[in-house]
Amino acid sequence: MKHKDFGERLQVSQSAKQAMVAKFRQRPGPDDPAVSERRAARAAVSAAREVRLAERDAKRLAEEANLAMAREAHAADQAAQERRAAAEKEESDARHEMERKAARDARYAARKARK
């Protein structure tokens, strides 16, 4: 092992601190063209992402609206079909009732004719 004295250790520590400060000072400032270029690139990517998200949301809303309209149309068709079925049943019941009354009247008339 090397035995370094206190002065050498202080000097190594000081040179390490100076190296860190030099490295920090070498970083480009906020007005550096490379930094502004990267910032602009990030902003462009972010704007494109926002546009894609807005398009996706608009597409989703349009699909939901189409689905809702299809559901409403189906419900309207089903309601119309139910109304037609109810009207046909009512008509059939009325016709059946008239036939039943006609048969009863015929039986009544036949009974009167026998007397």
Rank of each mutant, 00 (worst) to 15 (best):
K2V: 12
R83A: 14
D105G: 04
S15G: 04
A40H: 15
R71T: 03
A80H: 10
Y108F: 09
R39S: 02
R38D: 08
A47M: 13
A54C: 03
A79H: 04
P30W: 00
R42W: 05
G29E: 05
R52E: 08
A109I: 03
A70F: 00
A16C: 01
A54V: 01
A80F: 05
V21H: 05
R9C: 10
K59T: 01
R42M: 09
Q14F: 03
H74W: 05
S46W: 07
A76W: 05
H74C: 04
A110Y: 01
L10N: 06
A94I: 05
A75G: 03
A80Y: 07
D93Y: 07
R38K: 14
F6W: 13
S15A: 10
L10V: 09
D5T: 09
K89R: 14
L67M: 06
A85K: 13
R95S: 09
K101L: 11
E55P: 00
A70E: 15
R107T: 02
A75E: 13
H96D: 07
P28R: 01
A43I: 06
M98R: 13
M1F: 11
A44C: 07
D32M: 03
M98L: 12
S46H: 10
A34D: 15
S15M: 06
R107F: 02
R111L: 12
V21N: 09
A43F: 07
R107L: 05
N66D: 12
R100W: 02
A75C: 04
V45M: 11
D105I: 07
D105C: 08
P28G: 04
A80M: 11
S36N: 12
K112V: 08
